[in-house]
Amino acid sequence: MNIFRISADLLHLASFFILIFKMKATKSCKGISFKTQLMYTLVFTCRYLDLFHVLGMMITFNFAHITGLTLYNTFMKILFLAASYYIVYLMRTELKSTSDDARDTFVLWHILAPCAVLALIFNAQFTILEILWTFSIYLEAVAVMPQLMLLIETGEADSLSSHYMFAVGGYRALYLVNWVYRYATEPYYSNWIAWIAGFVQTALFGDFFYYYFVKIMSGDAALKLPT
């Protein structure tokens, strides 16, 4: 565990709270891609299946393998799952009338199918858990595509949406730093699957980061994108 990893997780956690706050404060989910949020619930569901294993150990008081890191991870995994499902729930119940589905036109198969095929080919072990974990790593890298398409179509984002995108994009960039740090300081062979996917994920936010920093520098309220 290092400062890069902790700040990455906290930035990721912050992204959930920014989004939930924005949706609750504006009582609207305009400009938010339901498809991207749905993909995130799928990402965390496929990635955190080991939760059942850990929780199983806990309720049977088998604390032999439970370390501080396990507790931290378990706590955060439950938080991430709860937050991402809550967001999808909000978008399909209370805020359904304000949904932007008409403009959320990204075809999900364009990311689901390639990620599934890639996970079957390139994985560390050919087991269900490992393939689902790998699928979640690939999917998370491209899950932001529907949101990016919606953002480009809208042509601009209000400040909370841009802070949300900055947090979601920034957390994986910090994970890249975390992997470099671990590679340099621990007998830790970097998981090249997570590294490449993380790099692609961060790169996808590249142009967004550029416009985000331009907005911050120019003190604009809304983020302007070239339409």
Binding site: D50, L69, N73, M76, K77, Q125, I137, Y189, N191, A194
Partner: peptide, 10 residues
Amino acid sequence: ACLEAGHDEL
């Protein structure tokens, strides 16, 4: 295996 690279992270 859980602590295998990347699996001890979120």
